[in-house]
Amino acid sequence: MRGLFKNKPLIIMLVAVLLLGVLAFITSADRSVSWVESTLGSVFQPVQTFAAKASNSIIGFFQRIFKTSDADKELEQLQVRMAQLEQAADENATLKAENERLKKLLNYVETLENYDYVTAVVTGNSQGVWFETFTINAGRNKGIKKDMSVVCADGLVGRIIEVGANWSKVTAIIDASSEVSVMVERTRDIGVVRGAFSTADDNQLELYYLPSGFDLVPGDRIVTSGMSSIFPKSIVVGTVSEVTRRSAEGTQSNAIIEPAVDFGHLEEVLVLIEKTGEE
């Protein structure tokens, strides 16, 4: 036993694990970002933004190549010329896709009358499946504050949980700890949507607390209820893919919801900033 206490690496490891555990516990609570985190994030942000944009272009390029199997056959016959044309077409497609995404975002934003918005690029995702958080390249410099809503053209994405000088962290609505007050668009029944933990890429949400005698069918659209102070009313959350419990009793979820947003391919998002009365 005495030998155990003489084992310096082991003692250092135990002390470090203890300190890191305490740190993780402290940082899991609602808090402001420390200056160390803010500075570290700011230093890495430009590199991250560049890496994320370059990576999206490269991945998009290869995805288009693999999707054009017919073109590949022609490519064998007209190798050099075709390759040049494809390269030009790929560049155009990248620009066109980006243009369409931004246009879609802009059209969407025009429907949110009481809100200004900040566009931001997703620069990094949390590792693994445990936490569905990601980092964006806009922070205090763009007027972003904690608990602001994050949306994209398809619907609700999540909320801001940490804000740095030029970066912010967003918790997606598919995170297991996330809860959003919602309503069924057709029947106006109010419920709560929670992120469902999954190890696969099939991001899903679970709908709870619908009133007794609720009427729900697959395909029903679920939108935000506007009852919380965080999310504005009527933002699309998803559609019902399966009704799991018909009665109001029991603790099982009422339905499985397919999120409107494709979280696996999120590139740009909008952070909603409520307009003040003076404006």
């Binding site: 470090a16 890191l20 740190l23 993780a24 940082t27 899991s28 570290l40 995702n125 590792q127 990601f134």
Partner: peptide
């Protein structure tokens, strides 16, 4: 090795994770 793991874990946690220290623990180990 442990110092490298600790630093990398803390950087990754600060940049992407909602809890700081968890990845650092794993990498340091």
């Amino acid at each position: 090795g442990a110092l490298f793991g600790l630093i990398m874990g803390l950087v990754a946690d600060v940049l992407y994770s909602p809890m700081v220290g968890l990845s650092a623990m794993g990498y340091m180990f």
